[in-house]
Amino acid sequence: MAALIQTEALCKIYNRQRPDEVQALSEIDFTIEQGEVAVLKGPSGSGKTSLLSLIGGMTRPTSGSILLSGNDIAKLPERFLAGIRRKSFGFIFQQFNLLRDLSVRDNILLPLYPTELKTAEMQKRAGEILESLDLASKQKMKVRQLSGGEQQRAAIARALINRPQIIIADEPSAHLDSKLTEELLAILTRLKTEGKTIIIATHDPSIYQHELIDRSYLMHDGSLVEAEQL
C-alpha cells in the first residue's frame, strides 16, 4: 500500500543563525499509510510536537520533504498550506485551543467559515457531530463552562467537522483522568473504524500501548530512534 504521509530526511531548525538556534528535528523518515494509527513516543522536548506541526503544514521544514499522497507540501505557499490544513487535517491540541467565550457549537463551526459550504449544511454537520460525541445538550454553553472531558470532546468535534482524512492529536490525554482517557480511546477507535488516519504524539502508556495503534515511533533529541510496526 502507498504511504499517505511520508517524510524524507526532514530537518527543522528554529531561530536559525541566531544565538538561540535550536535543532528540533534531524533527518526524520516517517511513514503512515491510509487508515493506520501511528503514535510518536518520547520525553518532552524530543521533537514530537515539531514533527506534528510539520506534517500538519503549520510550519515549514528547514530541509527535507513531506509527501502527502505523493505530493510534496513542504514548499507550498501559505494559502495552499491553509487549504490543506482545512481539507485534509483535523487537529486536536494538547491545550484544546478552543475560543473560551464562544459556545460549543460556534467553536465547532469555526473551520467551516472560510469554506463555500452553505450555512444550513454547516449547521447540519455540527448537529451530527455534536450528537455523535454526546455534546448536543451542551452545544449552547460557553466553552469555559465545560469540564475538561467535555472540552476535549468539543476539540475533537471541531477537528472532525471538515471531515478530514487525517487526525493529528498532540498529547490528547494530557489533561484527562483515566476514565476520560478511556472515553478518548473509544472515540479514536471509532474514528479508525471509519477509515481515518490518526497520528498521536503522547508519552501516556495507556495510549501508546493500546491495541488501536498500528505503528509506533520513539523519538529522542529530535531524531527517530526506533520505528515499530505492530
Partner: peptide
C-alpha cells in the same frame, strides 16, 4: 494573537 493562531491552525488562511 492566540485566537489568530488557532484560526490559522484550523485552516483559515491569512486573507481570511
Amino acid at each position: 494573537k492566540r485566537e489568530i493562531g488557532i484560526l490559522k491552525a484550523i485552516g483559515w488562511d491569512t486573507t481570511d
